[in-house]
Amino acid sequence: MSLHGNNLDLFEILVKQNYEKVYQTVYFYTRDKFISEDAVQQAFIIAYNKLNQLSSKDKFASWVISIALNEAKHMLNHNNHERITPITNFHLNTLSYSEEKDLDLKEDIDNALNKLKHKETEILVLKYYADLTLKQISDLLGINLSNAKVRLHRAKEKFRKMIDNEFKHNIGG
């Protein structure tokens, strides 16, 4: 209702539409439930107060993710915690697909990701799940833009080759 009531109602929609994606990205980065919750909470509060700085409506999720990751990075540095556990450490065997063809492709990709270095998986998550720009990624990872481009290119090519190899192997087998 009224001034902040209306804005909060609208912002509630934004938070609920985007919370899952923001939290999952930050958790992937920190592997710490409490830091992730705090960082995401703080990011949405900052976003609410700085909404007029958002350049494009399509970028809301990645904007909040970049704020949250920076908050998380600050918290991790402050607490001197370990961070980054590659996605390949998750329990991949719990995944299931309803369609057989999806399952085949999925198995190929699972095998592919198991062979990626964690830095390569990390940059794929930041680029393709979080939709961050290369500039944001390079700032976050503390590497220059060229290195970020190279790392992303290598990760993608490795991913591609591994899928191709798995596919050929399956056809051959």
Partner: peptide, 18 residues
Amino acid sequence: LSKELDKNIEVPDIDNQW
């Protein structure tokens, strides 16, 4: 990545977080 993170990362109750 979307499916992988959905499956493996448990998200806190969004209503509570809101």
